[in-house]
Amino acid sequence: MTIRVVLVDDQELVRAGFAMMVEAQDDMEVVGQAGDGKQALALLATVEADVVVMDLRMPVMDGVEATRALQARAELPRVLALTTFDTDEDAFAALQAGASAFLLKNAPPDDLLGAIRVVASGESVVAPRVTRRLLDRFAGRLVTDQRARTRFDALTDREQEVLGLVAEGLSNTEIAARLFLSESTVKSHFGRVLMKLGLRDRVHAVVFAYESGLVRPPNDRPD
């Protein structure tokens, strides 16, 4: 299946370079380009895309705000956030807004293309352990969402347990060993967690765990 990609960057030369790279792949095509977040939202209302390669720092509407706005739409594409700045603040903002991946613009071409493929497949590029490190650092900016807590309470005890272990950064294999279950059973449980909570991948499951109060910031955890 061909991966439909939308490129969003305020620098036309950067978009042109990315477009040449993407179009050279047998399994990808560029279905649209935009110069800022506002243009991107308008474009994505008219074209179907699987992955949006989104610059975070743009005029008019930045990539974080545009990514957040996309979350309110049905059948939304996944967002691969790009930035020239290697800062935890950028990564945190992108992930909290709903991005499934975070890369620097100067990453090797193969890394960018690989990230597009991973995100299109439904996975995330940022490891859950990295997500938890970011959330631990910036947890003070997160406010426990009562609606998230209500959705969490609708999970079964086993599903809550699996989500908690995912939030710790454990892989399906590690969770299976911890709970004495088969890996396929863990995958089934976690698949139901994602479906019930309306989440896209493991990274956003970790974010939800903080928002629901399942995981507490380090300062709030018992010694």
Rank of each mutant, 00 (worst) to 15 (best):
R4C: 06
L7H: 05
L7A: 06
V8L: 03
D9T: 05
D9S: 07
D10A: 03
D10Y: 05
G17A: 10
F18Y: 14
A19R: 15
A19K: 15
E23P: 03
A24T: 14
Q25C: 15
D27S: 11
M28H: 04
E29G: 06
V30N: 02
V31C: 08
V31I: 13
G32S: 09
G32L: 06
G32W: 04
G35A: 08
G37S: 02
K38Q: 11
K38A: 12
Q39H: 07
Q39P: 00
L44W: 09
L44E: 06
E48I: 05
E48P: 00
V52I: 14
V52R: 06
D55V: 07
L56R: 01
L56H: 06
P59V: 04
V60Q: 09
V60S: 01
V60Y: 03
M61L: 13
M61S: 02
E65L: 11
E65Y: 01
A69N: 11
A69W: 07
A69I: 06
A69Y: 04
L70H: 11
L70I: 13
Q71W: 00
A72C: 11
R73Y: 06
A74N: 12
E75P: 00
R78N: 06
R78F: 01
V79H: 08
V79T: 10
L80T: 07
A81T: 02
T84W: 02
F85H: 14
D86M: 03
E89Q: 14
E89K: 07
F92P: 09
A93D: 15
A94P: 07
L95G: 01
L95T: 03
A97D: 13
G98T: 07
S100P: 01
A101F: 02
F102H: 10
L103A: 10
N106L: 04
N106M: 06
N106K: 04
A107D: 09
D111M: 13
G114A: 08
I116K: 01
I116Y: 02
V118C: 02
V118G: 00
S124Y: 08
V126F: 09
P128D: 11
R132P: 06
R132C: 05
D136M: 10
D136L: 10
R137A: 14
R137D: 09
R137Y: 13
A139L: 08
A139G: 13
G140S: 05
G140N: 02
R141M: 14
L142I: 15
Q146F: 05
R147W: 12
R147Y: 13
R147N: 14
A148K: 11
R149A: 15
F152C: 06
A154V: 09
L155R: 09
L155V: 08
D157P: 07
E161W: 04
E161G: 03
E161M: 11
G164M: 05
L165Y: 12
A167Q: 03
A167T: 03
S171H: 09
E174C: 01
A177D: 10
R178Q: 14
R178V: 08
R178L: 06
E183R: 15
E183M: 13
V186A: 02
S188A: 14
H189G: 02
F190H: 12
G191K: 10
R192W: 01
V193C: 12
K196E: 07
L197A: 05
G198K: 11
L199I: 12
L199W: 13
D201G: 10
D201I: 04
V203C: 11
H204R: 13
A205K: 07
V206P: 04
V215R: 12
V215E: 12
V215N: 00
R216I: 00
P218C: 10
P222Q: 00
P222F: 00
